[in-house]
Nucleic acid binder design. Structure first.
Lengths: 184, 184
DNA sequence: AAATTTGTTAAGAAAAAACTTAATGTTTTT
DNA sequence: AAAAACATTAAGTTTTTTCTTAACAAATTT
């Protein structure tokens, strides 16, 4: 009798976890994290730390898949290597604090976005200036170049704002302005 | 002579645009927008408005591809249908203001993230409570359920914070706090 | 209302991504 | 230093995604 109840309870617990793991994976999918990487993260979220073999066990997938999956999550800055005594296997922990998750994940992307686009703009504006300043080129073309130059110029404040936003997140200022509501 | 110069200038302009379109597509790729949708957005970014045929022309792809691509961008809230007089074809414009882009794109995702996960947590917590309050279940299991319950509970402030962040972006408060630097 | 133009859906082909097994490399232990 | 344990890379397969062509549906013009 009690055995049966215990089995039911275990199943309920697994079910409850699975639902949340799934929804985490689904939402990470929104940001370009593949479903399987998201599921891996969700799984790790409920574990203290995990070895590749434990992941393989839980997810029923191959070890190389776990290796590449966990590497991707490390690239996203949301999983880290750790050391667990008693085993010589590598162990990994997921970032459990979603605020840290937010910081690590989005700031990295925004910084990259700003860098890539500002560099491209820099180069392209140089090229456009050469057109604008060159001799023997129709005025229409020069004006077209000028317009694109201005459009690119106008986008710069956005990338600089992204950089400011990242700074505000990293030094905690944003959380002073927009505090976390501690509910009871 | 002038003809040659003009051709060179045209090529330079196209080259300058292409570089920026590419970098836009690359950075959108970071957020889970496919490369081709990103390229389409980047292309539209430099145009006033476009019909499906104009897109097909520019990108050298089929019309159904343009139709689905533009629909995806509409789903992301970064492209809108418009009306251009003189043609009966549908026309579409890209959001040119990247701040608006940021608002439309990220707030939509964050709201969805909060909703999906809060709902999953709600359901799963109910399930865990049933375990915790049930008779004839080992204390170990009950405690395990309790721990997962608490972990889920602890994540709620994050989702509520996301909702606050979205509100602050939508009503402009965030930009009062973190102003856009107008460079000259 | 018929014909034409435009947009979308469906079906199939091509390309890309994600997994698995097998091989190789690397680290740790003995 | 050799062996064992573990992780990663490589090669090949399967699955998924994305694209194209073809068929269909909707809307506009004549």
């Amino acid at each position: 009798m009690t055995d049966k109840k215990n089995e039911e309870a275990k199943a309920s617990i697994e079910d409850a976890k699975a639902r949340v793991i799934d929804s985490i994976a689904e939402t990470m999918d929104l940001y370009g994290v593949t479903r399987s990487a998201g599921t891996l993260y969700g799984t790790m979220y409920f574990e203290k730390d995990m070895t590749l073999d434990e992941m393989r066990e839980k997810l029923g997938m191959s070890k190389p898949s776990m290796s590449t999956g966990v590497k991707k999550l490390e690239d996203y800055n949301i999983v880290k290597k750790t050391f667990r005594k008693g085993t010589r296997k590598h162990t990994f922990v997921a970032e459990k604090d979603f605020f840290r998750f937010f910081e690590n994940y989005f700031t990295k992307k925004w910084i990259r976005e700003a860098k890539i686009n500002l560099e491209a703009i820099e180069q392209s504006q140089k090229e456009l200036i050469r057109v604008i300043e060159s001799e023997n080129v129709e005025d229409d073309l020069k004006q077209e170049a000028e317009e694109y130059f201005q459009q690119m110029e106008a986008s710069k404040p956005y990338y600089h704002w992204l950089q400011k936003l990242v700074a505000a997140i990293e030094n905690g200022d944003l959380f002073d302005y927009l505090p976390v509501d501690q509910e009871e």
